[in-house]
Structure formats: C-alpha cells, structure tokens
Amino acid sequence: MNEFPIERAKQLKPKPDPKTLVFGHNFTDYMFLMNYDAGQGWHDGRIVPYGPLQLDPSTMVFHYAQEVFEGMKAYRRPDGGVQLFRPMDNVRRLNDSCERLCIPALPEDVALDAIKALVKVEEDWVPSEPGTSLYIRPFIIATDASLGVHASHSYLFCVICCPVGAYYKEGINPVRIYVENEDVRAVRGGTGYTKCGGNYAASIRAGERAEGQGYAQVLWLDGVERKYIEEVGSMNVMFKVDGKVITPKLTGSVLPGITRRSCLELMRHWGMDVEERLITAQELFDAAKAGKLEEAWGTGTAAVVSPVGEMGWNDEHAVINGGAIGALTQKLYDTLTGIQWGTLEDPYGWTVRV
C-alpha cells in the first residue's frame, strides 16, 4: 500500500450535528493533494489541512475547463468500522474521464490508496446516524498558468470530504421530474459519459426552469433527435413498464453510473427481466396513460435510489404508482444501502474496508 506524509492541522474543526447535515456544506479537517508535471508524472502525494488553493488568474482550468471529478462515499458499519462501496469503479471511471479530457491517467493503486488514506485520517468524521455518510470528492484540474487552447502540462489531483445526510430534502419520498425539450445535456462524441464540470454547468439553466415549476430534477432528452430519454440531472434513470425494467442504454452521452450498474446487477441476480435500450418520452407517457408505467426511479451515488412520483412533459403529467414509492424501488434502496452500511451481507465483493 502506498503511504503519504501528513501535515497535521494546528486546530481541528468542530463537527456538525449528524442529525441536521446538509449535503456539501461542511468539509473535514484534511484534504489529499498530488501534482503532475510533464516529464515527471504524478508525484508528491500528501495529506494537508483543508484550505484554499492558490492559483494564478491565468490557470487553464478557469478558462478551458480541463478538469474531471468523481463522487463516492464512506459508510459507518454497525461494528464501528468504515467501508467504501466499489471504490475501484470510481477510480477507473475517473481515468475514463481523464482520457477524454486529455488529462494523464492516475495510477489506480495510488489513487485508491490516497482515498483510503484520507478517509482513515478523517475516520471520526464518518457519521453513524441512519442515512448519513462521508461524501468523497476526488477531482483533477489543469494548473498551467497559460492562455491557449491545448492540454495543460501540469495538473493537481485533490480529494476532499464532507459528512452528508440525504441529497434531496424529500429523502426517499418520490420526487417530481420534468422532461426538458429546449436545452440538451450532451451529444454522442462529446463529454456526456464523463464526469466533468462542463456537463453540469450546461444543465443549470434547465434545472432552474424545472425548479421554478416545482420539479426536483430535469429528465434529459438526447441531443440529436430530442426524443430519447437519457438521464435525470444528477442520476441515471430506470422504469418498470408492464413488469419489465427498462433503462437508457449507454450511448456515449449518458454517464455510466456505478449505482446504475449495481442496480442492474442486483435485478438480474434476482432473475428479473431487464433491458438497456433507447426509450422515447412518448413511449413512457403512453405507458402511463395505459396504466403500464408501474415505477420510475433515479440512481446515483449522492441519492442512491430516488423514486419518481410524477413526470411532466409539455402539457402532459404522469403520476406513477399513485405518487408513492414502488416495491422494487424500495427493495433496491434497502438492498444497496444495507450492503453499503454493512447491515446486509455483501455477496458481490463490492465493499472495501478502510
């Protein structure tokens, strides 16, 4: 295992009340940093007190958005230990994003050891209240102080952490989502399958429009024909229609979610009929009218599984399962969170102890 030096903080922060955690607001005492320079590679991994980064105004990430990130969690087990969920999948997806953004790949073992080392140092920050966890945000930014559209020659890998509760204020209660007709999130050949900030910046306008109409998230259509469902804002999306589960296939403009993959693997293990394919918005609303749209839910690291109780599209509205969480959605949520928090056995080898 790779080891990293630790610069100890002069004063530790008071920890927030675990019963009132707000997602992404309270950050821990330390962060992990590692530099990349052309000709030297990744070097000088270290754990230092959490604090501001000093960057030149011309730093390339500010101007050309050459950056990538990940999202993952550490969970408090019933025995008091701490574990991660499929962390190597996150590391590999981060490197997939790096390849698309022309960022040098991280050595997988170094990246995973860095995350584990930081979580170990911050172990007291991992909350134990039901539904809480320590959110982990690894990211890489281009750090050349230079203007000009080309790949940077230097980068910074950083990992920060924050204790979190539920991602949505609704918790596990169903959310309302709106099909977006005007803006698009991504197109094939672009960066839709990566986790880079530009994808999320491009989604903000539609998200604000949806929020103004009382919806929690946008349901994106494909960027070419504007008719195929892709994903929900910060989540992949799945539907149970007439007994079969369908989800948009990965076409290059949809994020290959790790929670998505886990749900698909669970349902196939349970012997369910699951299909990854193109799905039109019209098909879903027709199914709803026919009484065949039985359940809908989003999947993602932040929310885990989030039931969808209502969908809006133009002047149409579809209430799903009477606006209540469905049995399959609940089973997926209970199974995944049980494995993540260590209250259920992990027969798949998904969890890694810190």
Rank of each mutant, 00 (worst) to 15 (best):
T251K: 13
E230Q: 13
M267A: 07
L284T: 08
I229T: 08
T280G: 01
H153K: 14
G24A: 09
F157C: 15
V68G: 14
C158I: 10
E230D: 07
G309L: 06
G223I: 10
Y36G: 01
E99C: 01
S154M: 02
H43G: 04
R93W: 10
D273G: 09
D96N: 15
F23W: 09
V319E: 03
L219N: 06
D346P: 01
E230N: 02
P87A: 10
E276H: 06
E99W: 04
N199S: 06
K227G: 12
M31L: 11
E231R: 03
D242T: 02
F139Q: 03
V119E: 09
L219W: 03
T351P: 01
T20K: 08
P307H: 03
I115W: 01
D17I: 12
L53H: 10
A210P: 10
V304W: 11
V164P: 08
F157K: 04
V119M: 09
R8Y: 11
V218Y: 02
I47K: 08
F139T: 02
D96E: 12
R137V: 08
G51S: 05
G271Q: 04
P347G: 11
I136D: 13
K13I: 07
S97I: 14
M311V: 00
S253D: 15
R226L: 05
Y50F: 10
Y30T: 09
D346S: 05
P307K: 10
L250Q: 15
E7M: 05
T301Q: 08
M1Y: 11
V354D: 14
P87N: 12
P14L: 03
W42S: 03
V352P: 00
K244M: 14
N95F: 09
L332S: 09
H317M: 00
G214Y: 07
M267I: 04
V224Y: 15
P347A: 11
I140E: 12
Q11D: 05
T247P: 00
Y348W: 10
S133D: 07
I320T: 09
E225L: 12
G326A: 08
V232I: 12
L328M: 15
D315S: 03
Y200M: 05
Q330I: 01
C102M: 14
W297Q: 05
V175Q: 07
L293E: 07
I229Y: 02
E180C: 08
E170H: 07
A288S: 15
F23Y: 13
A186E: 09
V237P: 00
F157Y: 14
A206I: 04
E122I: 04
E99G: 03
E108C: 08
Q282P: 01
A327Y: 03
S203T: 06
P163F: 13
A142L: 00
F85G: 05
R93F: 10
P307D: 08
Y193Q: 15
G300H: 14
P107Q: 02
P14K: 06
D79H: 08
V179W: 01
D89I: 05
D79L: 06
D113C: 10
A117P: 11
W313N: 02
